[in-house]
Amino acid sequence: MSQFPLVRSDCGETMEAQMTHAKVLFLGSNATQIELRGGGSARIGQYLNETVVPAMALIAAGYDVVLATPDGTKPHIDEASDTAQHFGGDQTAYKRARDFFAEHPAMNEVRTLASVIEQGLDEFAGVFVPGGHAPAVDLMQDREAGAILRHFHAAAKPTGLLCHGPVAVVAALADPAEYRAALIDGDDAKAAHFAQGWIYAGYRMTVFSASEEKIAEEHLLKGELYFDMPKALRLAGGEVSAAPQDFAANVIVDRELITGQNPASDHAVAKAMIEALGGTHTAA
């Protein structure tokens, strides 16, 4: 018997009869290194809780989750996230999350971004991008990720992103690789030029804050990034804000865009995503 049983409603009925089987596309990252100012790099990945908490919540609410990455391989989990600390110190929740990522088909039947585009995006009810530093390396400059985001924007379908994940929305630019290169070069004027016509200009959003990034640079990355995530979004035209307190949960919803600020926002962004999809949130 599966260790991920059907969730039961309060009346004792399994959710099997209630399941919509609508699909939510998860855009995962394949990046394992990020550039540091002055040379060198830091080992990074996708955050465990930011991936599995929303995925498990969506599945519990009756949605199917389809994971796709640029090269079709499973995302690397950032070692800094592989701890019970990101699950409120709950060892049982942490183990369940690790088992889910290791064993559940939704986390292992990985597609390429190209293949989901080729098969057709209309079958998906929404799209979600987990965080960790990894999306700031590949997804934010990936043209296929950009095509996917433009599709969900045009269809006004829920588009959820968490922590560093929101920076992936710059992939919807006409030339996201040039935009990212301008950020690394510190050429704000050039970046602003490549940001013209961005579909998310004027949207309210949040992302891992500059002050939170300073803490991550000191304690996790052991070096300085070339750009922080709020700057990357503001230069493109986003109206970025953060919670008054670092690492406090914060979610902003503006039209179809649902953004969560940091790892502590995992449950809140999952709840907002499910509500936007029209489902009922069930604690995973």
Score class of each variant (00 low, 15 high):
107 M>Y: 01
226 Y>V: 07
132 G>Q: 04
76 H>E: 07
269 V>C: 03
184 I>N: 02
109 E>K: 15
86 H>D: 07
220 L>T: 10
10 D>W: 09
158 P>C: 14
267 H>T: 14
232 A>N: 08
169 V>F: 06
201 A>M: 03
187 D>V: 02
66 V>H: 05
274 I>S: 02
89 G>A: 09
158 P>F: 04
66 V>Q: 09
36 L>G: 10
79 E>A: 14
179 Y>L: 06
17 A>Q: 15
111 R>N: 09
122 D>P: 02
276 A>G: 15
242 A>N: 09
143 R>G: 04
82 D>A: 07
180 R>P: 00
7 V>I: 13
18 Q>F: 12
248 A>Y: 04
26 F>T: 08
149 L>G: 08
58 L>E: 01
10 D>G: 05
158 P>Y: 08
125 A>V: 06
136 A>R: 14
128 F>C: 14
178 E>L: 11
265 S>G: 10
262 N>T: 06
283 A>V: 09
18 Q>R: 15
95 K>M: 08
51 T>R: 10
39 G>V: 03
61 A>H: 03
223 G>T: 07
186 G>F: 01
213 E>F: 00
12 G>S: 11
201 A>Y: 01
120 G>E: 01
37 R>C: 03
55 A>R: 12
275 E>V: 04
212 E>Y: 05
96 R>H: 10
183 L>D: 00
76 H>S: 14
261 Q>K: 09
88 G>T: 05
259 T>K: 13
220 L>W: 02
100 F>G: 10
100 F>A: 11
168 A>P: 01
35 E>N: 11
118 E>A: 15
197 G>T: 10
84 A>S: 12
152 F>R: 13
18 Q>M: 12
124 F>Y: 13
10 D>H: 12
132 G>T: 04
266 D>W: 00
5 P>A: 11
40 G>H: 07
80 A>S: 12
65 V>S: 08
143 R>L: 11
199 I>R: 13
241 S>C: 12
173 L>T: 05
247 F>C: 11
226 Y>L: 11
204 R>M: 06
42 A>M: 01
54 P>H: 09
246 D>F: 00
127 V>T: 07
220 L>S: 09
117 I>M: 11
32 T>N: 10
32 T>D: 05
220 L>V: 13
175 D>Y: 02
226 Y>D: 07
82 D>K: 13
212 E>T: 05
20 T>W: 00
209 S>P: 05
81 S>R: 10
252 I>R: 12
208 F>H: 10
166 P>M: 03
153 H>K: 15
177 A>Y: 00
251 V>L: 06
86 H>M: 12
133 H>I: 03
17 A>G: 15
1 M>A: 13
49 N>W: 02
221 L>T: 05
178 E>P: 00
84 A>Y: 00
32 T>L: 03
61 A>N: 07
211 S>E: 15
207 V>I: 14
214 K>E: 14
210 A>D: 12
265 S>N: 11
239 E>T: 08
